[in-house]
């Protein structure tokens, strides 16, 4: 069996989540990858160990990974593959369902675990449940969640690169512009690191103690509902069941007791650090690393230690 992986990239580099998609696909069989865009990316793809072949589509219509031409290209190539795979990135989520429809296949989005060639595990209800589903489609189309699979190594392979013929462009869409966020503070929901404060921050003024640390980590700032209710920060900072649901690589909780509403909003973070003066605080039940102590001493010390 052979899988075709759409390898999406940004500014000439293969996205890390796409490398995870390669790992997922390799659990299913041989892996071919499709690179639409720059030849440098195709060369990088050829170096990924485990990739048997790189399909390179260089035509200008693929430059911005627009869904309409890219889905058409995938469909034109799909005949030889048992699975079409991509990362559940903005590109993968945009392109693959369209391609699936054209192939008359029901896609399987956000796969976190592969049971066998027919059977996949995916979160539903915002991660509150995990569904194991079996597909009866002859061809499987799936996107995989990057955090669930290790990224394939970037070096060590030497796959052949084959240039593919462009498919007919449906010509219904045009790229206009891209605006990458230049704000120093990333968006709470998409930040890699979140620094969050609770009632333990004591006041609106003292809440600012988190900012130098967030700057250092390139982190977004979040807050518990208690901190929002106490007026330390506006509501849009709230992480939790009634606020924003976040799942960063690193979540640092300062002075947050860990009410279940809050936990519901951040429990899927990869690594959780908790600092609280109460050793019994429920947040420690979910934290990978905890420090019992005064956050007003620990936060500046941590900021300093990161220098």
């Amino acid at each position: 069996m052979t899988a075709l992986v759409l390898l999406d990239h940004e500014e000439g580099r293969i996205r890390k989540s796409a490398l995870s998609a390669v790992t997922a696909a390799s659990q299913l069989g041989d892996v071919h990858v499709l690179v639409a865009g720059d030849v440098a990316v195709a060369r990088a793809a050829a170096a990924i160990p485990g990739v048997a072949k790189v399909l390179h589509a260089a035509d200008a219509q693929y430059a911005h990974e627009l869904a309409e031409p890219l889905a058409a290209l995938i469909v034109s190539l799909a005949g030889g593959y048992d699975q079409i795979v991509a990362a559940a990135s903005a590109v993968g989520k945009n392109v693959l369902p369209r391609a699936a429809a054209l192939l008359d296949v029901q896609p399987i989005p956000e796969v976190v675990s592969i049971v066998d060639a027919e059977t996949f595990v995916r979160p539903i209800y915002a991660g509150n449940a995990l569904a194991t589903v079996r597909s009866s489609d002859a061809k499987k189309v799936l996107t995989v969640r990057g955090s669930a699979f290790d990224a394939a190594p970037a070096e060590g392979g030497s796959a052949p690169i084959e240039t593919v013929v462009p498919a007919t462009n449906p010509n219904v869409s045009e790229f206009v512009a891209v605006h990458l966020s230049d704000s120093e503070r990333p968006e709470l929901e998409s930040a890699r690191v979140v620094v969050s404060g609770g009632r333990g921050l004591q006041s609106e003024e003292k809440f600012h103690v988190l900012e130098p640390l967030a700057d250092k980590l390139g982190a977004a700032i979040g807050a518990s509902r208690a901190a929002v209710d106490s007026g330390f920060v506006p509501n849009e900072f709230q992480v939790g069941q009634t606020g924003k649901i976040v799942a960063p690589e690193l979540y640092l909780a300062f002075g947050i007791s860990g009410a279940i509403q809050h936990l519901a909003g951040m429990k899927d973070s990869r690594v959780i650090v908790a600092v609280n003066k109460d050793p019994e605080a429920p947040i420690f039940q979910v934290a990978d690393y905890g420090i019992v102590g005064d956050l007003f001493e620990i936060v500046p010390a941590l900021t300093e230690a990161l220098n």
């Binding site: 369902p97 989005p109 209800y125």
Partner: peptide, 14 residues
């Protein structure tokens, strides 16, 4: 927000 498929719009367009 139940099955979190994020697919219908793309599929319809296709």
């Amino acid at each position: 927000i139940d099955d979190d498929m994020n697919a219908t719009g793309q599929m319809l367009a296709g």
